[in-house]
Design a protein around this nucleic acid. Structure first.
Lengths: 209, 209
DNA sequence: GTCTATAGTCTGATAGAC
DNA sequence: GTCTATCAGACTATAGAC
């Protein structure tokens, strides 16, 4: 019997079945993410997901208890990635610049096709998400971080005085999900870089001279 | 036989039945408008509308061939009212001011609860609307008028130079439907006037100092 | 395969316009 | 009094979660 290499853990290796199971779960999440971005929540049928992954519909329910739970898992993964992107920004940069950078990051993610049409597409999904502890925790953590940036930007004197902090935060979220991006992309008259630049500028500096 | 007064038309007066029919049609449109604004397209069942109006479901189909046709009629009425509001603005005002005024008008309409969650809520509805000649004509007429205002604002030198006209128009539509309004309204921290003022200002002048 | 939801249809009964 | 529009609601068909 050959000795295990140092790379292999002492505890019994995950069984092949187990590894397959986890790979399939990632594949399901990826497919769902793609379909959510493409069609939105309600139009996306569980059959679509099964077909995309290439597994039986019933198998989906071995991984996720319901369509809502599956969508929630996708959204939680997205919030985590967003939070990581925010953490990766240089801490010494002015708060306003970091907010700009986050908006730009999000818009580029969307242009690359990776971001599901926001919960706003479906009241059912929104309610399910707000009932999901893990999702709400992630969302609150992200909102805390963004809220800190807003307050910091204000004390830096970077914001116009009469906007409520609450307003600035909602404004940021709404610009991150702005449908203008999809229309411009579909219109095809502007490059991705132009779309991102104009949207970021409009969000922070307005469109008037 | 008494002579008809001058106020009465020669042709036979509309029968009572006919008048009832038309009143009911308005009631159906009003109820649908309200329900669309409250729940969105798919969650709104025809039974809901019938119940809201207080008529039998079958009677709905005496007025509108389908759920899609009914929703389209509501949206067309909304576009007409919007165009009338635009026509009512003083023609001598600068184009940029008229755009601001239109955005303010729309946001106030939404705060008053009268505007259906945009077509974006449902791909089905969006497709049905785009296949509806009357709707598309109204939408194009409105877009023409707004596009004219944008071009005029640009030649007035009111817009920042590097925004595409196309971008400015989409930006305007997106701000008119901005979910920020609903969040702020639900939050309750700001008055309606504050919400409108901050949103209009953010849309045109940005949030940075 | 089962079950639920809902668009859309149909029918017999009935109120009320004519 | 006659007749027609409307009513209540059963029913069909379909889609989609599970």
């Amino acid at each position: 019997m050959p000795t295990r290499s140092a790379r292999e853990p002492e505890r019994p290796a995950k069984s092949f079945r187990q590894a397959q199971f986890e790979r399939r779960e990632q594949a399901i999440l990826d497919a769902t993410n793609r379909l959510l971005a493409e069609k939105g929540y309600e139009p996306m049928a569980m059959d679509d997901i099964a077909a995309e992954v290439g597994i039986a519909k019933g198998s989906l329910y071995k991984h996720f208890a319901s369509k809502e739970a599956l969508a929630a898992a996708v959204m939680i993964r997205l919030l985590r990635r967003t939070r990581e992107a925010l953490d990766a920004l240089p801490a010494e940069a002015p708060a306003a610049d970091r907010l700009r950078a986050m908006l730009e990051w999000t818009l580029r993610e969307r242009l690359d096709g990776g971001v599901p049409h926001l919960p706003s597409t479906s009241a059912t999904l929104r309610d399910a998400l707000l009932a999901n502890r893990e999702y709400v925790d992630e969302l609150m953590a992200l909102s805390e971080m963004l809220g800190d940036l807003v307050r910091q930007a204000r004390s830096d004197g970077a914001l116009s005085g009469d906007f409520a902090d609450e307003f600035v935060l909602y404004h940021f979220y709404a610009r991150a999900c702005d449908p203008t991006l999809d229309f411009l992309k579909a219109g095809g008259a502007l490059t991705d870089d132009q779309i991102v630049a104009q949207m970021v500028r409009a969000a922070f500096d307005g469109i008037t001279r």
